[in-house]
Design a protein around this nucleic acid. Structure first.
Lengths: 340, 340
DNA sequence: ATACTGTATGAAAACGCTTACAGAAAACGT
DNA sequence: ACGTTTTCTGTAAGCGTTTTCATACAGTAT
């Protein structure tokens, strides 16, 4: 019934311990030497009053939020969970909190939009397509720490970016199809244009073709959008148009699911008639029928690397403008290999 | 010469617009009527100065953080992504930010642990096993808004809980096995004891047996831990001990993956020799071989319901102490049904 | 003793906002 | 014409910390 009893403040602690609030602050933050005895008295007072510092007051006074922001278009896909895990772990390890914000969900009219930024975080991890160039530029101008994920830095802005070895990974994948399985007509489903992963995978595909003296056939390329439904439709259309292919690189693993369905509907056998390969190695890839040959990307590591870089930046350090994390070919059965 | 680094404050805006800071605050928060003309002048000034309010100052002054905290043991599993999505969407819709914190990851010694709580959030969503009873009690005592997820409220504390219809879902699932497929020896892999889902699924299992006049055989029950590896081992052990079963309820879908492997290794056919059913209907369940019969739980909805309740609480409202979201039987092929 | 170190503490000024409270001006009723 | 409300705006008192500066008090070295 007596709820409205005010929460204790630093002043209460100070009074109880018989010291000044400055001293309490000092034992709280270990920011200046305090006698062992005084420290004890303060600790006890804190304990007894169950005191917790108001972080708002701290932030206001110290101008540091100890919070990093994560900005993404939406929460979904098998990608999200491990990436988030990497980010949270990295942040927690460095003593930072994590504020999460999605930009693609509709906000109601009335609500005052309080975006993530310099006012409530020390730095931002920005995922593809979640912040417009204007705001990105503004933040970068005022020297606000920023790290981009799977997205190139806009025009000469030199914002550090983390991504993975898409090109060489794709090369290995396509080369495997050509060298080991003798495939010649390898279809390719592109991802979204804004996604830098998409662009690099395309380059890897082209490079692999070139390396093996295969000419690029534009009819073999379609838009899969890194999306199960779109990829399903794309695969159907490809077949409907009578395009012949003996293998297909679906762009990513989610698309592979759609392609697999389309192929099944068309009574094509995988991998005998058409080999299917994906990219990412998300958790379900090994459960598909047949188990999917793909390229493993260290998703969690991308996340932790991003925070790591960001915290470096926050602490005033320098970081590489572009970090490429290694990818690894994962051979299962959808390419035609026999693994047990 | 003004300092280039200093970010504009409300005072700068006020001066530029020729009004008091109170007025600026009022147009910012629409908290009192302001003439159209004055509003315009202020807006312009804000625009020109590129002013962004410091949220720390706001929070300190208004004593509201407009932030809700999410506390969980760890970020992982197919569960996490959709739940998080529901939570973020719900929070964003109501104009709240989302602070995420995992409790099971090791924190380095030096870092001052600044836990989520009354000092930096308006309320907390607490997942199973992520906050000890003591702190839970303390927060509840001071009237801090709390919502529990998949976890019963500790002793007479009456903290609202969100969960799903585990018992009736399980009953439907087991009954299907008995009635449609004539199964009689249905093994069951329990989940963790702290998980209330686990307890209720066990009750549902027992209830279904009872309803069909089947006696409960304790040797058919083992610990699967809602975990692929543990379930794999449990299934192997069950078979190793010579326990006979013509069906197995794996507790959840992740465990089903392990069980399926174990069965395959033992040359048991699914569903001919042993029917396998899971619970949750996570994304990969339909990709398993054979596609898994399971119970769909509205994971995303659990998340959004949780924020919804929490925000109700934050606004001083009353909420139900226990919300049960409906589950739905999803019949695929691992139970023996022929679906196309 | 004298002047110098440090080392441990306190007083008080920020930090940037919200929000009573109050006053002025405009609108209204009589 | 006059009070009375209503609408708008300004003044200033917090909100709970951190942090600068000053000070008191030990030690040391002169």
């Amino acid at each position: 019934m007596t709820l409205p009893n005010r929460q204790p403040t630093i002043a209460d602690v100070a009074q109880k311990a018989g010291v000044s609030i400055a001293t309490v602050s000092r034992v709280l933050n270990r920011t200046a030497p305090v006698t062992e005895e005084t420290t004890q008295r303060v600790q006890t007072a804190i304990e007894e009053l169950n005191y917790r510092p108001r972080s708002a007051a701290r932030v206001l006074a110290s101008r540091k939020t100890y919070t990093i922001g994560l900005l993404l278009p939406e929460i979904s896909g098998p990608f999200f969970s491990p990436m988030m895990r990497g980010i949270e772990a990295g942040a927690a390890e460095a003593g930072f909190d994590l504020l999460v914000h999605t930009t693609n969900v509709p906000r109601p009219e009335g609500t005052p939009h309080r975006p993530l930024g310099e006012h409530n975080t020390d730095g931002l991890i920005v995922f593809t397509d979640s912040l417009d160039t204007k705001e990105l530029t503004r933040l970068h101008r005022i020297g606000f720490p920023l790290v981009l994920l799977h997205q190139p830095s806009p025009e000469s802005l030199d914002i550090p970016t983390i991504t993975v070895e898409n090109k060489s990974g794709t090369e290995k994948l396509i080369s495997h199809l050509i060298e080991v399985h003798g495939k010649r007509q390898i279809a390719f489903l592109r991802g979204p244009d804004t996604h830098m992963d998409s662009t690099w995978r395309e380059r890897g595909y082209l490079q692999a073709l070139k390396t093996h003296n295969l000419s690029f056939d534009p009819t073999l390329m379609a838009y899969g959008g890194f999306n199960e439904q779109i990829a399903f439709a794309a695969a159907k259309q490809l077949m409907g148009e009578g395009v012949m292919f003996d293998a297909i690189f679906t762009g990513d693993d989610e698309s592979a699911v759609g392609v697999l369905s389309a192929l099944r509907q068309a009574n094509k056998r995988v991998p005998e008639d058409v080999a299917v390969v994906g990219f990412d190695d998300v958790p379900f890839s090994s459960y598909l029928t047949p188990p999917l040959t793909t390229v493993r990307v260290p998703i969690e590591q991308v996340g932790s690397e991003a925070v790591h870089q960001l915290i470096c930046l926050i602490r005033g350090g320098q970081v590489d403008l572009e970090v490429l994390l290694p990818t690894e070919l994962v051979i299962r059965q959808s390419c035609g290999c026999q693994t047990t």
